[in-house]
Design a protein around this nucleic acid. Structure first.
Lengths: 218, 218
DNA sequence: CTGTGTGAACATCTTCACAGCT
DNA sequence: AGCTGTGAAGATGTTCACACAG
């Protein structure tokens, strides 16, 4: 399949074809009228724009169950991420290989960051250690941090942090599950009309993709 | 602090106070004019609406590193989730306790679901096993599935699936990182004006919260 | 003729600003 | 006087529909 139309891609992604074309148009005019998009060329252009063609060395700090799971996660390599180092505070872990990579001790954190030119760090430590690890990563030159620890991190201007809370997705499922159960029971007045209407509408969107309001704090 | 104003909450959450008030208003009129919101009452109302006051038994299928990490994750209990059972296909795992809960064998999946009245399942298996596990969960009565396996699951109408791809967040960080690096180098024409403008704007939003376009497939 | 690229119309979301309750 | 709750205005996002390139 050398070429693909916006219509086909839209159907596959479950969106409107006009939206897809408009989104693509922000990247440039990579399609051919009357024909569609050249698959290989399109994949390359999107990959480049998203930064997938670059090599991104990352370090994972905190090699517990989650850190190990991340180190073993296959999806990283295919998206340009290379696990440059695993770091843990437990001296007993030092030297032990996880996912084929020897764990190094926190003492060498700064040196590891600098030697590998790492700018993205993943924090998978317990909550108590996260801020301290974060500060050291930032001081050593890391400018993007993915935080799995259940804490809000304070970082200086210019450093990006994204927090992943594994329970939020479950919460969204539970929210919809709750409404599946109480569908017609809504007549008992438990939900004040507007909320019921808003919720009904959210559920009508395809699947449970209506996220929790942006206002809800993590 | 018995009471709190929309202004205070908005500042804490980093949003506009009008937005916060409007969002709250969809749940009902729980504030007092001239005073603010009663903290305890507000927390209860939001919790109830989100389903946090209910007890949600969940099963985790696939007790590798990720499954174990999830089983140990503290955030679940505080949000009404109870890990009712851990299930794995490896007979050697059966009976071994993880996070204080004995792992059970996949053979008993249907019985476990039914005995515990489970309606939410978490899939943390390898990609190859995910669809099969999903089918069995659905057949046994599960109606919401959180999928960590890197596959798209097919489910019948009425079943909700949410997919978590741990590399997407990293990808978003890398995207912004890429633009931090090539900020003024954009003059070399690598980015077609519109995309550069759109990207610049997204970055100007607080933090890296500008997500990847909805169109991008997982 | 087919299917992109895009102004214009429409829809949704956010913010403003203020009436009205406490 | 202070702060909510909410219409109306403004901003942003999505879809329509069609001119035009191949």
């Amino acid at each position: 399949m050398p070429t693909v139309s916006s219509e086909e891609l839209a159907a596959a992604a479950g969106v409107n074809s006009a939206k897809l074309r408009k989104d693509f148009s922000y990247l440039g005019s990579y399609g051919t009228r009357g024909v569609g998009y050249d698959v290989e060329y399109l994949v390359y252009q999107i990959s480049r724009e998203l930064g997938l063609t670059q090599d991104w060395p990352v370090v994972i700090v905190g090699i517990g169950n989650l850190g190990a799971a991340l180190a073993n996660y296959g999806g990283f390599a295919s998206r340009g991420f290379r696990v440059a180092a695993l770091i843990d505070a437990d001296p007993a872990m030092a030297g032990k290989p996880v996912a084929g990579i020897p764990v190094q001790h926190t003492d060498d954190l700064e040196k590891i960051i600098q030697d590998n030119g790492v700018s993205i760090g993943v924090i998978a430590t317990p909550a108590g250690a996260a801020q301290q690890v974060c500060d050291r990563l930032v001081a050593a030159g890391v400018t993007s941090i993915l935080n799995f620890a259940p804490t809000v991190l304070n970082v200086p201007e210019g450093v990006d942090v994204r927090k992943v809370d594994l329970s939020i997705e479950l919460q969204i499922l539970a929210f919809h599950e709750q409404r599946k159960a109480g569908e017609e029971a809504a007549a008992d007045g438990a939900l004040p009309g507007a909320a019921a209407a808003a919720a009904r509408k959210a559920a009508a969107d395809q699947g449970p993709d209506g996220d929790v309001p942006a206002v809800m704090p993590a």
